[in-house]
Design a protein around this nucleic acid. Structure first.
Length: 256
DNA sequence: ATGGTCGGAGACCGA
């Protein structure tokens, strides 16, 4: 089984790249963030032509998440129960015996800002909900743009980023809180090269010089972690013309 | 020192 996540920064713009990537990698599930497309305009037919069904929750201009799968997406749920949030940031569904959760964590803008408070409150509510999901399902995968670089080794220049949004202590505490529910960072289950990132600022220099952060993640419950074979970031699409600023993350799991 | 959206210029969000 192959699970993947990709912040595409507008599915409308990136659709040709997404279709090409699906065809090349053939994931069982692809989670998308920042689709920036209302549900009425979600490209259902183009994805179905490749054999992928979809569940999605979009809005005008901002946010928007989706799950694509070749197998049925059962019991789809939009949003975090109890969190009254008009921003479309969460969609979950069951594929086979795996509960897959796609998240687009708020950016936070600046440490101490109103949006930063929203980010931390959002993360606390999401953590509580994930605890319930983990109690209900054995095999759980939470994947998406977490907008947190969990450790200094996930940052190209820890000194330059120290205390900034995406790397600050409260955000890293919240990330550890997610791991505290029994989730494991699939990327760190395996030996990895140094300086592997999933996001690079737009701008001519950032990607060629690998000035990036690892903020896109696949978190898995212990039974999935036990059969996780690999977790990699595919930097290929970041080098395309008119790319997303994020690269896809892929994890593979042994079939039972 | 750059991208996407909405709307028809530039504010807003992004990270």
């Amino acid at each position: 089984m192959k699970l993947a996540t990709w912040n595409v920064n507008s599915l409308t713009v990136r659709l040709p790249q997404v279709l090409e990537w699906l065809d090349l990698h053939q994931p069982d599930v692809l989670a998308l963030q920042e689709t920036k497309v209302v549900d009425e305009r979600f490209p259902v037919a183009a994805l179905e032509a490749l054999g992928y069904g979809s569940v999605f929750a979009g809005q005008k201009t901002y946010n928007g998440v989706a799950l694509l799968s070749r197998r049925p997406l059962d019991n789809p749920k939009v949003g975090v129960p109890g969190l009254d949030d008009p921003q479309r940031r969460v969609v979950a569904a069951t594929v086979g015996d795996v509960r897959v959760v796609c998240v687009y964590v708020p950016n936070g803008q600046q440490v101490g800002s109103e949006k930063f408070t929203y980010k931390l409150e959002w993360l606390a509510a999401t953590r509580a909900w994930l605890e319930a999901e983990l109690a209900e399902h054995t095999r759980v995968a939470v994947m998406g743009d977490l907008n947190i670089a969990p450790e200094d080794r996930d940052v190209h220049s820890p000194k330059r980023w120290e205390g900034q949004v995406l790397v600050s202590a409260p955000e890293r505490d919240a990330f550890r809180g997610l791991l505290g529910t029994g989730l494991h960072d699939a990327f760190r289950l395996h030996p990895q090269p140094e300086r592997v990132f999933s996001w690079w600022n737009y701008g001519a220099l950032a990607f060629p010089r690998n000035w990036g952060l690892r903020i896109d993640h696949i978190l898995v419950s212990a039974p999935l972690a036990a059969v996780c074979q690999s977790c990699e970031i595919d930097v290929g699409p970041r080098g395309h013309t008119r790319p997303s600023d994020h690269a896809p993350v892929i994890a593979t799991f042994a079939d039972p």
